[in-house]
Amino acid sequence: MANRTDSSQRRGESLSRDRIIEASIEILDTGGEGGLTFRALSEKLATGPGAIYWHVANKNDLLVAACDVIVARTMQACMAKASPEDTIRAIALGMFDAMNAHPWVGSALVQASGQLPGVRIVEGLGQSLRALGVPDAAQWPTVSALLNYILGVGGQNAANTQFAIARGLERSSFLHATSTTWSQLDADAYPFTRSMAAQLPAHDDRADFMAGIEIFLSGVKSSGARSH
């Protein structure tokens, strides 16, 4: 019995938490949250669950840690741009692309509410907004609104991509079909939507997302000018 215990301890020590997290990210990318089990992780790492539990408490611990690695990498690449505006743009687009590449990140951020992954994003946005001169009283609501936009739109885009993949939908065909449907709407009941039908097939999700960020930045700068 003592030998088995010693052997289990050595296996636990031979694994690093970083290695476990990287393996978890690979599983999450291919199988989503449902695919991340300690059994799947044990098979991937060629070890027993006990060795993994030596480093992580449970699946939620793994999910948050994996999410934090993705967010930390993204934030590191986005900070210290030429201006606060450019930093905000970089954070927004970086997280949009990260959620598209790792669709589980959006859900993980919700589950990790108030923890380090989200704090990293809040800190990056908050420092930039302070540098833009946003008044103290307006900083939290501004950060909150911007964060909700980034995670909401980025998460929905990632979900749409996964929905299309799961159902074998090709983006161009889907958009053309939707455009046709919109063009046939009642002109009196849906004048705006019908007028957008021709633009739908050629629209770019990333460009649309960044257009929203520019609206935020214009509002921030306009509010700052009025407050002085």
Rank of each mutant, 00 (worst) to 15 (best):
G168I: 08
A198F: 07
T180S: 15
I121E: 03
F192G: 03
H176I: 13
L169Q: 15
I150V: 13
L146V: 04
A177T: 15
P201R: 05
A166G: 11
F216Y: 15
E214T: 05
D208P: 00
L147C: 08
A112M: 10
A177E: 15
G133Y: 02
L125C: 12
V143F: 07
Q139F: 08
S195W: 03
G118N: 15
G126C: 09
D208K: 01
P135I: 01
N148F: 07
Q115C: 03
T161E: 02
V110S: 09
L175C: 11
V110D: 11
L147P: 08
Q111D: 13
R130Q: 15
I215H: 12
G212W: 02
T142W: 06
Q184H: 14
Q162F: 09
A211R: 09
F174E: 14
S113C: 07
I215V: 12
A198Y: 05
W182C: 08
M196Y: 07
S128E: 03
S195R: 06
M210N: 07
T142N: 01
L129K: 05
G154T: 09
M210V: 03
L175A: 14
R167F: 15
S173C: 09
P135E: 02
N157Y: 06
D188H: 00
P191K: 00
D205V: 00
R167T: 13
Q111H: 11
A112Q: 03
G212V: 01
A211C: 07
M210L: 11
Q156P: 00
S183P: 04
A202D: 12
A137H: 10
I121M: 12
T142H: 03
G168E: 15
N160G: 09
D186R: 00
L185W: 09
N148H: 11
I150S: 01
A211S: 12
G155W: 09
F216I: 08
A211W: 07
S218R: 12
L169Y: 15
Q184M: 12
L175R: 13
G114R: 01
Q199M: 09
N148P: 00
G219V: 04
F174W: 14
V134M: 04
A159Y: 08
V143D: 06
W182A: 11
R120A: 09
L217D: 01
D205Q: 06
A166M: 08
N160C: 11
F209N: 00
R120Q: 14
N157W: 06
D205S: 06
S113N: 06
G124V: 02
